[in-house]
Amino acid sequence: MKKIIFDTDPGIDDAMALLLAHACSDIELVGITTTFGNASIENTTRNALYLKQKFGMSAEIAKGVNIPLDQVRTEPATLVHGENGLGDIKIPKIIDTQISPLIAHDYLIETIKNQPGEITLVAVGRLTNLAMAIKKAPEIGKLVKEVIIMGGAFGHNGHTGNLTPFAEANVYGDPMAADIVINADWPVTLVGLDVTQQTFMSNAYLEKLRVSSAKYGQFIYDITRFYAKFYNDDLGLDGFYVHDSSAIMYLVAPQIFTTKQGRIRVITDGPAKGHTLFKSSDRVFSIDEWAARPKQTIAINVDPQVFNQRYFDVICSDETD
Rank of each mutant, 00 (worst) to 15 (best):
L251V: 04
F55N: 04
P76L: 04
P68Q: 12
K3V: 05
I300S: 08
H105V: 02
I248Q: 01
D179G: 09
L163Y: 11
P165V: 02
H22M: 00
G37P: 08
T297V: 13
P175T: 00
T128A: 04
N114P: 03
T196G: 06
E319N: 14
I300K: 11
A131F: 12
G262V: 06
P101S: 12
G141V: 09
T189H: 09
R265S: 02
H156N: 08
N203A: 03
S58P: 02
K52T: 03
P68V: 12
V144H: 03
L190Q: 06
I149W: 04
A137L: 01
R46M: 12
S40E: 02
E319V: 15
I95Y: 08
D234Q: 15
L108F: 04
S25N: 14
I41H: 06
Y241R: 12
L193F: 01
I91P: 01
E207S: 14
E146L: 04
H105M: 04
Q305W: 07
N203E: 11
T120G: 06
A177G: 15
F166Q: 07
V284S: 11
V266I: 15
T74M: 10
I119L: 08
I300E: 05
G236Q: 08
I89L: 05
T97N: 06
E319W: 13
A177C: 01
T33G: 11
T258M: 00
K54F: 11
V65Y: 08
L130D: 12
L108T: 02
A292S: 13
Q305K: 15
S202W: 02
Q255M: 00
E110I: 03
D185T: 04
T33A: 09
R283H: 11
G270P: 07
R225P: 00
E42I: 13
S58V: 10
I315K: 01
G217A: 11
P294D: 07
A272T: 08
I140T: 03
A48E: 06
G87Y: 02
M57L: 14
V171D: 04
